[in-house]
């Protein structure tokens, strides 16, 4: 029992450290790279991967944490990011039950869908309400590159998180 608790605790610490690490890379390293005009959304990848690998509860908590970091860090009303990240974490967590394989296809597909949902959400909450109706433009010039970048990064990061998940399962 104690072992399990210690295991859970260290697991949580590792998760939080990973999220922090991703957050710092995303906000302070990516923008410095001049030829990277568009950067992958690491926090989004982590949120949906954890949902997929560990279930709804971990998905919600991860989403909550990532959303909180974004809300704290960026300007505007408080809670917008918490809302979308935790919903994404939860929705992907539902798929956890029907997912056992070591394939990358499902995560990649999810990366596409989640990226689209996230970006459309940002479009609606920040642009549509200011009456910017030119959605096709935003779709092709902002959303598409961002999704593509995130998709490529998903392949790398998901593999890492998946291996970590296996290690956790073995130790518990």
């Amino acid at each position: 029992m104690i072992n399990v608790r210690v295991g859970k605790f260290s697991k949580a610490i590792i998760h939080i450290l990973i999220i922090f690490f991703a957050f710092f890379i995303q906000t302070s390293i990516f923008p410095l790279i001049p030829f990277l005009s568009c950067s992958p959304n690491l926090l989004l990848i982590i949120t949906f991967s954890y949902g997929l690998l560990y279930g709804e509860d971990v998905g919600i908590i991860t989403g909550l944490f990532c959303g909180f970091l974004c809300d704290m860090y960026f300007n505007g009303v408080f809670g917008l990011y918490i809302l979308i990240y935790s919903v994404i974490g939860f929705a992907n967590g539902i798929l956890n039950a029907s997912f056992f394989e070591d394939t990358i296809t499902l995560p990649m597909l999810l990366s596409l869908v989640n990226g689209l949902v996230y970006n459309v959400y940002i479009y609606i909450t920040h642009f549509l309400i200011r009456r910017r109706f030119n959605f096709p433009f935003y779709l092709f010039n902002v959303i598409a590159p961002s999704i593509l970048f995130t998709l490529i990064t998903t392949v790398l990061i998901y593999k890492l998180l998946y291996k970590l998940n296996l290690i956790h399962k073995r130790t518990l």
């Binding site: 990516f30 959304n41 970006n119 940002i122 902002v142």
Partner: peptide, 12 residues
């Protein structure tokens, strides 16, 4: 400059 909004959406 220490950080930028990560999305293409904002230039802050």
């Amino acid at each position: 400059v220490i950080s930028k909004d990560t999305d293409e959406w904002f230039q802050v």
